[in-house]
Design a protein around this nucleic acid. Structure first.
Lengths: 222, 222, 222, 222
DNA sequence: CATGAATGAGAATTCATTCAT
DNA sequence: CATGAATGAATTCTCATTCAT
């Protein structure tokens, strides 16, 4: 008689909607406070390690309040990732539509990355994705669709245009757009793990990388 | 921050010595079995998510036996990382002492990386470090001293020799040795998160990267 | 992204077997202690109202120990019902196979019921079934198959034989075997709810009921 | 026993008066809506299992509104039972005052029971009393005074009159009036637990029961 | 009166760690 | 050395009740 069920599947009708509930300023503010607190805690301890108790305390709300805004811990985590990603995705989309020279676009994106990601808590979100997405396949797919897939499609478009315009003579970046962002990944990881042992000037590294790459692929004046 | 570190300080009396205990064959075999099982479980669920119960079951030993070989869960985790790292460190040391042309050394290391890391469970160890090391500063430092510090020192030595020999004309890699391994990091991350959505030919990517880099820095025959 | 799932479905591999785990005397004794404590608590507060904390305390074990023997609260509840029912089912089966006069069989069963059910904690189990089975359809079906279905089949067999033998001249009990046990149900309910306000001599009531019934259906010597 | 009654005594300040509040039509309607919703929820999940959230939703009021009409969950429960019982008590009182033949009275009551209880949600109230009254001694006593005590007094009066009039020759029902309603109890229980496995024609069963009983006790024309 | 967001005391369940056998 | 039953602190999630609007 039901020996093998995995879990109780406790009651839970009429889901707490998860997304934006009330509309009051207070309500929105609380939601933001919870997300901010969650970012700190998840970043510091990972998904499993973070305690909702601490999130609540840090957000200045009662434990139960979290559940008025997010169905459960996992939902809170995913909403956190999502809401942080949205503006980044917008930035990527915008970058793909420009007609500036390739090098200029990358320089601009590198600056934005250093300023808007590395320089803010958004880098923690990136780290969280690196650390946890594997255990949340839905999240991994969402992230894949929103970020690398779009970003690489944009890069490919830009590279093709640059070739067509004669700016560059090599299509390596078309086939491996990963190569252009690889140092950014290094920067995030380094910042999280080794910064206290050795500083890394991420912006300089990114610039050096672009120099190498464009030195290799730019049309050289004979 | 880090206000409420209640957790990690539970009971912990008379520590069972931790390191390599007896010398019996059986004992050593058990230790290996536990480490192998731990790798699987930690890789699949992360440090917090893994259960020693599952490690024991997978290793075919009783739960208590784990404690005969490792002081606690954290020690098991760190020993796992350490023991996996040892041969990699040796490889790095060896690579730094060669006199082969720089390009040849990197090609060789890339092959070794694809074969010995990406193609084995060692990639899971790398991922675990990326994911968890932040919460284990001791581990992060150990890893930093053993791997990137040594590896980058080796790279710097090789680069200097290559410049001295006139093989290359650019010292970017001396200042940012990270740039040469960045795509390897991408490969590990991609493999863990996105492989099911889009395959990535890591070896081809690494080769393409070297082509770009060396095209940029090699002395060009006038 | 998975907005509508009902519950976390937390990990739970390799079910804790639920039934008899170890084989030690101690283990069996603990299991019994837990079941006994559970009976008290469930009987006093119902399924939802009972707290496993109290069950553990009453059984003299730690909270976690309960989970070594029973997958969860529901399983504990159902095993409790089941293990109590088993001997009752056996009794019913035996009663159906006799060749005694119908009246004698019922007299015997009534005695057994008063002695073995009303006079023991088994009456609490009956009450629990009345109270809770509706919320555990699996349990309700199990109970139905084991008790009323068998019991009424037995009654019908006995009634038919009694008619064939000319003991009784009426087949009402064949069509409504419920009528013969109805007062027993009243006795259980009364005992639970009203005994403190007015005592009910259950045995006398059952006897009076049989007198009525047999007075109505027995072949009357013209 | 009952060592650890921690539960039922949480906060409870400035009680909101409990009983019938305002007099507005709206107010009365709301109260009725809440009671109706409460019946559904308590019947489906029991006292502990029912959630006031669901009651409020079903009644179309806010959660706080319940507390404007009922002091707390327990009060709501008891008022529900009480208000449902009132008309039943009236029916019993009326039945006790008739001068119809005993058999006719019972036939009439059986019809009323099938129509007004079994055929309506009132049967759920009966079930709730069977299930929960034990945990609410006040409720049990109230119910005892209002229903069985009165009903059995009425039955005894009717029986005595029937004997005096020479309708029946046996006083069993005087001593055990429970015997006359026992099948009704069976009908309620069966309906709740086993109806899906086997239908029970309650009315036919009650009639068959009366036939048996009156066949046994009616003065037989010599 | 009505609302429903907020609260926080629980309650079920998990799992690292211990220890008697 | 090995075992695995037992422990109990910790953690997530629930829901009766309150109270500011």
């Amino acid at each position: 008689m039901n020996k093998t069920k995995t879990k109780k599947a406790r009651r839970k009708r009429a889901a707490p909607v998860s997304a934006k509930p009330g509309r009051t300023e207070k309500s929105v503010a609380r939601r933001e406070a919870i997300l901010a607190a969650a970012l700190e805690e998840f970043a510091a301890r990972g998904f499993e390690g973070a305690r909702l108790d601490d999130v609540a305390r840090r957000a200045g709300v009662a434990k139960g309040t979290i559940y008025l805004h997010f169905r459960d811990k996992e939902t809170l985590f995913q909403e956190l990732i999502r809401s942080t990603l949205t503006p980044i995705v917008a930035m990527i989309e915008a970058a793909g539509k420009t007609d500036m020279p390739l090098r200029a676009v990358f320089d601009h994106l590198a600056g934005a990355f250093v300023r808007e990601v590395l320089g803010t808590q958004r880098k923690d979100i990136v780290r969280l994705i690196l650390s946890e997405a594997r255990r949340f396949p839905k999240l991994a797919e969402y992230y894949y669709r929103e970020v690398p897939e779009r970003a690489f499609a944009a890069v490919r478009g830009l590279v093709r245009k640059a070739i067509d315009r004669g700016e560059i003579v090599d299509d390596t970046l078309f086939w491996f757009p990963q190569l252009i962002i690889a140092p950014a990944l290094v920067a995030v990881v380094w910042d999280g793990l080794f910064d206290k042992y050795e500083k890394l000037d991420a912006e300089a590294m990114l610039r050096a990388h672009f120099n190498l790459v464009f030195n290799a692929i730019e049309r050289r004046p004979s």
